[in-house]
C-alpha cells in the first residue's frame, strides 16, 4: 500500500492518534482542531480507515492480565488436520487471535477469559476436543514500551 493512497488527514490520524485519543466530552472535535479540519471530516476519515481495514478500531488497549486472564498458546497440528482444528479453535469465543505459522508448532492463538481458572478450562477443552496438545505461553513479563507503531506511511 503506497502512502499516496492516504490523505494527509488519514496519515495524521494513523500516526498521531494511536495513543492520547482525547478523554474529553468531544474528542473528535478536539482532534479536528489539532488537524485544522472539521469534526465531520475526522469522523468520516476514521470511518473510511476502518472500512478499508487500515484501523481495526479506535478504543482502549488493555494491558494483558489486568482485566481478566489471557495467554498465548500453540499447537502442532498435521497439515491434513489444520483446517478442522483451526476452525474448532477459532470457534471458541475466548479465542481472539488465531494465526497459522510456519513451524512444527503451526497454530498460534491468544485466549482470554474473565479468570485464570476459566482460561485453563478453555485450553483443556481445546486439547480434549481437537485431540492435540496445547502448549501455553503465558506472559511472564512485558518489555515493550508502547508508544504506538510508526507506520511511516
Amino acid at each position: 500500500m503506497r502512502s499516496a493512497e492516504f490523505s494527509e488527514i488519514d496519515r495524521r490520524l494513523l500516526n498521531d492518534f494511536q495513543q492520547e485519543f482525547p478523554l474529553s466530552p468531544t474528542p473528535y472535535a478536539d482532534i479536528a482542531r489539532a488537524l485544522g479540519v472539521s469534526e465531520d471530516e475526522v469522523i468520516a476519515a476514521l470511518a473510511r480507515l476502518q472500512a478499508r481495514g487500515a484501523v481495526s478500531r479506535v478504543g482502549a488497549v488493555v494491558r494483558p492480565n489486568t482485566v481478566g486472564a489471557s495467554t498465548l498458546a500453540a499447537m502442532s497440528v498435521p497439515p491434513a488436520e489444520i483446517e478442522r482444528v483451526a476452525a474448532l479453535v477459532s470457534g471458541f469465543p475466548e479465542v481472539n487471535h488465531n494465526y497459522e505459522r510456519e513451524h512444527a508448532l503451526n497454530l498460534w492463538f491468544v485466549a482470554s477469559a474473565p479468570e485464570a481458572d476459566r482460561l485453563r478450562a478453555v485450553l483443556d477443552d481445546i486439547a480434549a476436543r481437537t485431540g492435540y496438545e496445547v502448549l501455553a505461553f503465558p506472559l511472564v513479563e512485558d518489555y515493550h514500551i508502547d508508544l504506538g507503531f510508526d507506520l511511516r506511511i
Partner: peptide
C-alpha cells in the same frame, strides 16, 4: 478511564492500526 490509564490497566486509547492492511 483516566484512572485506569494512569494505573496502566488501560495502556492507551487510540486508533489501533491493522499492520497487514497497511502493507506490512
Amino acid at each position: 478511564s483516566r484512572h485506569m490509564l494512569d494505573a496502566g490497566i488501560i495502556r492507551r486509547i487510540g486508533a489501533v492500526p491493522n499492520h497487514y492492511a497497511l502493507g506490512y
